[in-house]
Design a protein around this nucleic acid. Structure first.
Lengths: 260, 260
DNA sequence: GCAAATGTAG
DNA sequence: CTACATTTGC
């Protein structure tokens, strides 16, 4: 089974890129982030024409996630509160979480808050969101031993995941508190699929639009597949496809594909 | 000699349309309105590559006029105040006037204010601007017996120049005061080149982007060539080229070409 | 309906 | 650097 994750930075603007990529890379499930579209305007038909089922959780302008799946998904749910009803609804005001089950494997598609800059209100929201994610996963794990948690985490967990080694501790996406908050999540029993196969630095999934970052390979590896033990054992590959980032008007992220 | 006028609604957005059109229609002078660009950002090189000289008078976001000429122009000047220095400088805050001489013929390229709606401040400004234009022309005529005054006049002088005959008197671009203000200008000795050759209604140069106006030919003839007597006698054709209005992302105006 | 500017987010 | 919303102008 192949599961891909891709922050497309607007599904409508990137519609041709995403459809073309799916035709070339007929993965079982594509986890999409930053759809930036309300549900009534999601371009279902383009993906239905490629024989994909669509599951969406969108909002106006910002955020928004979707699952595109060859086979129908089961037990689809959106947001934290559908699993944790007692939760403060503020955690679902931004649409960042969608999940479904395929072949007894729960696919969890996340768009973790960016956090803007270390110490600001959005940064605190990001850290809080990750503690909510931990609780949410504890609930999921009770029912689902096999979870593929993927998406745009907006965190580079290790220095080898970042091109720039200077001032990492004060930078958003690599500060100690962010890394620790993510480690606290992973400690529930998740491992990084990409690092099962590749140990070197220099592999990234996101390059800022500014300063010709892609041409200079000044990137960050912030899009991940975190797998529970059995799935991690079964994993046979995890690769970043830089090709779509080279197209005209690309997303700033590249798709990442795991096979298990 | 062929002189064209075309409100391009942003020279940068329409750069390919205008360059392609000039290649297909190598007129001697193209008078451009609504360039919407400051002088330092005008795309000179595109037109120089087509062997055109460029003379510009632009501003940020709004208005802006340009002359594109195969042969160098002489006595180029911009704004009313360069000819009428005693004039209140408010009349040149908006960049709407550029002129130059070729083969003893003065080409005057105008972007007359739109006026928004009858009776408002902008409407009064439009009427005032036309009285200033009259004074400006009186000065020009002292030196130049042959003047081709063209551009976007934002006035349809006769009912046959408008698709819609209802409520014309209260509509911007066809109110009595606007028509009279323009007639007062023309009375200095100008005649409408287009009407030398075509008497029927149904010929327009502008169609609103809204309500599928072009598809329904709900247009207005507001882009004109007004010629002094000798030029009018020499004129051999005056045609509206609707082809560019049919392209993807067109200007709302079509070019109009006079030959004399 | 379009184009441009501004502001926000990333 | 890019995407989207909003405002202004036509």
């Amino acid at each position: 089974m192949k599961i891909a994750t891709w922050n497309v930075n607007s599904i409508r603007t990137r519609l041709e890129h995403v459809a073309d990529w799916l035709e070339q890379n007929p993965v079982d499930v594509l986890c999409v982030q930053e759809t930036k579209v309300v549900d009534k305007d999601f371009p279902h038909s383009k993906f239905e024409a490629l024989s994909y089922h669509t599951y969406i959780y969108g909002q106006k302008s910002y955020n928004g996630v979707a699952l595109l799946s060859k086979k129908p998904l089961e037990q689809v749910s959106t947001g934290f509160t559908s699993i944790l009803p007692e939760l403060d609804p503020i955690w679902d005001e931004q649409k960042r979480v969608i999940t479904g089950v395929i072949d007894s494997c729960r696919i969890l598609n996340l768009y973790v808050p960016n956090g803007s800059e270390v110490g600001c209100d959005k940064y605190e929201f990001k850290l809080g969101w990750l503690t909510v994610l931990r609780k949410y996963l504890q609930a999921l794990l009770l029912e689902n031993p096999n979870i593929c948690m993927c998406g745009d985490f907006n965190i580079a967990l290790e220095d080898r995941d970042i091109h720039e080694k200077a001032d990492i501790k004060n930078h958003i996406m690599s500060s100690d508190a962010e890394r620790q908050a993510l480690k606290n999540v992973l400690e529930l029993g998740f491992a990084d699929a990409f690092r099962k196969f590749t140990n070197e630095a220099g592999h990234y999934s996101w390059w800022d639009y500014r300063a010709m970052a892609f041409r200079r390979n000044m990137g960050w590896r912030i899009d991940h597949h975190y797998l529970t033990t059995e799935l991690y054992e079964r994993a046979v590959s995890c690769v970043i496809d830089k090709a779509p980032r080279k197209l005209e008007k690309p997303s700033d992220h590249a798709p990442v594909i795991v096979e298990f």
